[in-house]
Nucleic acid binder design. Structure first.
Lengths: 229, 229
DNA sequence: CCAAAAGTGTTCTCCATACACCCATGC
DNA sequence: GCATGGGTGTATGGAGAACACTTTTGG
């Protein structure tokens, strides 16, 4: 079936840029390549699309197989189709980016995957193929999108403080935000549930915990509301 | 080479959503399919990616071969990878959208192409495959992007009036804009050259002609300027 | 009592919006 | 002279940005 056309077909792969957030740092999940080409180099988790699965499904499958992650936010990023991007063979890759609630999932990659490791996004090792370029596009997209779509919550645990949320935005956007203005704006949007519960185990005044309420968000969007931070 | 891997490969295609703008109407360029499947149906111009060309190059080539268009704005849109999107065979397509200065290019598609035809974007016939869905994504993207990146000028001739620019934005955004506020904002951005030349051949007071100045735009962007309309 | 972060209001500036009339031209 | 769009200014309200101190808690 793959040779039904008279022209040869490029290979089709998926690659996932996996972001996490932990203690004021944006993190990136990388795997060590087990096979040639680029054996032993750090790379984005990914692999070839199979004939019976959609490209989206391929991305989820590879993510699960290579890192143990499942049930996370995953969205198509961009397709990289340069002729020479893969040494030795013609491979086009559809890149995705994933957002992971690190606190929940921390243990799983280590157990299931060969060598999936979290790196601070600011200290990423050299990457195989054009994965460095893919990462750059993913960072740009994340920075752009986080401001007008509430995807930042995908990086936080279900219960979080306003300061954690603010630190997340500061880490992604790369600049400090004013505490009072930030809180005012976030609370005014009325997207968060006040969980009436306090942070525990900190050695300073405990902060209130909040939860993102997707129902409220969807309702507001229907009424023409635009998230913006 | 295409059978070097043990697994069969999906086919890889490109499709182009081509937008034009003419007399207050957003237009879409479609071709009639000459081959099965979907022979005789209207479809987006497109075709298979060859092994020796990048995906971007494939999109440009197909656009030229099927519509005669060259040298136009062309940008990747999204990759459509559902298993059943192409009847009978597994084909993944990388969709692009093109913006055409219709006044310049009006004659060319008719001469070079089999049957490339402009349709008002509001009166598009049923499309082959999932091309209707691709069109919807392209419209959403155009509507979103036109507001914060100056791509609207790609749809206008090199010399245009402020009213033409306003009508373009009204057509894309689907709502009326205030004339005075629109002109104030556009001129305040200082992206346009006043060509000190008047419109000709109209039966009312002639309007001033302006030109978009990409140099000014790039300079302003370097200084942190953000286009927004 | 000290360190560390939580929590809280006001002022000012600027930008978006709303809005109506005279002008130039072709027929 | 009339129909058609071209071209212009002002007033108001709302949102973003700047800014500092008190409170709570654990150690």
């Amino acid at each position: 079936m793959s040779c039904r056309y008279d022209r040869p077909r490029p290979g089709l792969a998926v690659d996932c840029v996996v972001f996490g957030f932990d203690e004021a740092d944006l993190k990136l999940l990388l795997v060590e390549r087990a096979m040639s080409p680029c054996q032993g180099h750090w790379a984005l988790p990914g692999g070839f699309v199979r004939i019976g699965e959609s490209v989206d499904e391929a991305a989820r499958r590879e993510l699960r197989e290579e890192t143990g992650l499942a049930g996370v936010f995953l969205e198509q990023l961009f397709t990289f189709g340069a002729v020479d991007r893969h040494p030795g063979d013609r491979v086009v890759t559809v890149a995705y980016y994933a957002l992971v609630k690190l606190a929940d999932q921390r243990t799983r990659p280590a157990t299931e995957a060969r060598a999936a490791t979290w790196f601070p996004a600011s200290k990423v090792p050299p990457l195989a193929f054009d994965h460095g370029q893919i990462l750059q596009v993913a960072l740009d997209r994340l920075r752009g999108k986080v401001r007008y779509v509430p995807i930042g919550f995908e990086l936080l645990p279900p219960k979080f403080t306003l300061s954690e949320l603010q630190h997340l935005y500061e880490a992604i956007l790369g600049r400090p935000l004013d505490k009072r203005n930030f809180r005012k704006k976030v609370l005014a949007m009325d997207l968060l549930d006040d969980l009436e519960e306090l942070q525990r185990g900190v050695r300073h005044r405990a902060a209130r915990l909040y939860g993102f309420n997707p129902r409220k968000y969807r309702r507001l969007v229907k009424q023409g509301f635009n998230f913006e931070l």
